[in-house]
Amino acid sequence: MSMTLNELAQLRDSGFGQPCPRHGLNLLYWFAKDCVDIDIDGHMVPKFSLKRGTYGFHPFYNRIDNNNTPLPNQNLPKYEVGNLSAPGAKKLPLHVRKKYTSRCNDSNKDRIIVCLNDDGYFDGVYVAEHTDQMGFSRSHTYRVSQGLLEIIKGLEREEFLQQMKPTHHQRQSYHEVQPGVKPTHSERPSEDDSWCIIL
C-alpha cells in the first residue's frame, strides 16, 4: 500500500522531484492548478478529458513486473502524465519542461498517475518515479491526498517550490551520494532553482 502524503512537509521529505534536473515538483504544481477542479460536493474533477492525450496523458496499465506493481490493483481506469517525450507533452508549461535534456539523466524520471472512478472523478492521485525505462519504484510511489492538492492549489509556484527546499540533512545526503561533484557551468544555480542543485 502506498503511503499517503497529506502535508507539504511529507511531500518535501519524500524526495519526489528532487534534485534537479527532475521535474516532478513543477509537474505536480501544474497538475494541482490546471488539471483538477473541486466540485460543489467536494469531488476532484478533471478539467478536461484524459482520453484525448492532452498534455501527454495516456493509459497506465499498472503492469506487474517482478511482483512490483506500483499501485493498488483496483479495476479502475488509470492515466499517466509527465513523460516529456510523449506526444502532447510540448503543451506542458515551460517551467515543467525547461530542464529536460532528452538524454539519459533524471530530467524525465517523474510521473503523476491518476485513477478515475465510474463517475469520472479522480479516485486516486499518485506521484511516482521510474526505476528504468519501463518500471516504477514501488517504494517511491506515493498517494497525494485531496487536502494536499488543495494546499498546493492555494500557493504561488515560487512559494510552493520554496517550501519544497530540502532540509540541511537532505542536502547533505545528496552530497554524500555524489561526493566531490561540483556543479558545471550549466548546473550553476539560478535564482529560482539553486536549492535543488547537487552540492
Score class of each variant (00 low, 15 high):
6 N>R: 12
124 G>Q: 04
46 P>L: 10
25 L>S: 03
140 H>Q: 13
164 M>W: 01
16 F>I: 06
107 S>P: 14
179 P>R: 08
117 N>M: 02
194 S>K: 08
116 L>F: 12
138 R>E: 12
154 G>K: 03
182 K>L: 10
181 V>Q: 13
161 L>R: 11
80 E>L: 10
17 G>T: 11
65 D>Y: 04
55 Y>M: 01
20 C>M: 11
46 P>D: 08
178 Q>G: 02
33 K>M: 07
137 S>T: 03
30 W>A: 03
48 F>D: 05
131 T>Y: 13
92 L>V: 07
29 Y>S: 01
186 S>K: 15
196 C>P: 00
50 L>R: 13
104 C>Y: 07
179 P>A: 01
88 G>S: 09
56 G>V: 01
1 M>D: 14
160 F>T: 04
183 P>F: 13
144 V>Y: 03
185 H>M: 10
184 T>C: 05
101 T>A: 02
37 D>N: 11
3 M>V: 02
191 E>K: 08
150 E>A: 09
165 K>D: 14
140 H>W: 02
144 V>R: 08
76 L>Q: 15
189 P>E: 08
146 Q>R: 15
168 H>W: 11
192 D>G: 03
68 N>L: 10
120 G>T: 00
199 L>W: 10
107 S>F: 02
183 P>L: 01
26 N>V: 04
79 Y>A: 03
170 Q>L: 12
5 L>V: 11
